[in-house]
């Protein structure tokens, strides 16, 4: 297996969509390739960071200031 193949199918590897034989090939490649090992780790970190950056949270914030509500309503009224 080459690095190119490893990276191309990395999402399938992480999504557990490979056959046991294919999986074993990936694991063997990881055993001998520090670049792909680092790639795998940083790819997974990237996915986690995306989630942290974008996912809305469940905390209940306090009300927004009255003037913001008024600004929104007056913009709508003008349209």
């Amino acid at each position: 297996m080459t690095c190119r193949e490893f990276i191309e199918f990395l999402d399938r590897y992480l999504g557990d969509e490979l056959s046991p034989a294919e999986r074993a090939q990936f694991d063997r490649h990881l055993g001998v390739c520090p670049d792909c090992t680092n790639y795998l780790a940083t790819y997974q970190e990237t996915v986690e960071l995306e989630q942290k950056a974008l996912a809305p949270d469940d905390a209940v914030p306090a009300d927004v200031p009255e003037d913001l509500v008024r600004a929104i309503m007056s913009t709508i009224a003008q349209k």
């Binding site: 989630q51 942290k52 950056a53 949270d57 469940d58 905390a59 209940v60 914030p61 306090a62 009300d63």
Partner: peptide
């Protein structure tokens, strides 16, 4: 103004604005 009005309303243990951690 994002501090929850009542502690019981807060669904996460966190500072406002630094959720996700």
């Amino acid at each position: 103004f994002f501090v929850p009005l009542h502690p019981a309303e807060a669904s996460t243990d966190e500072y406002p604005g630094i959720r996700g951690f």
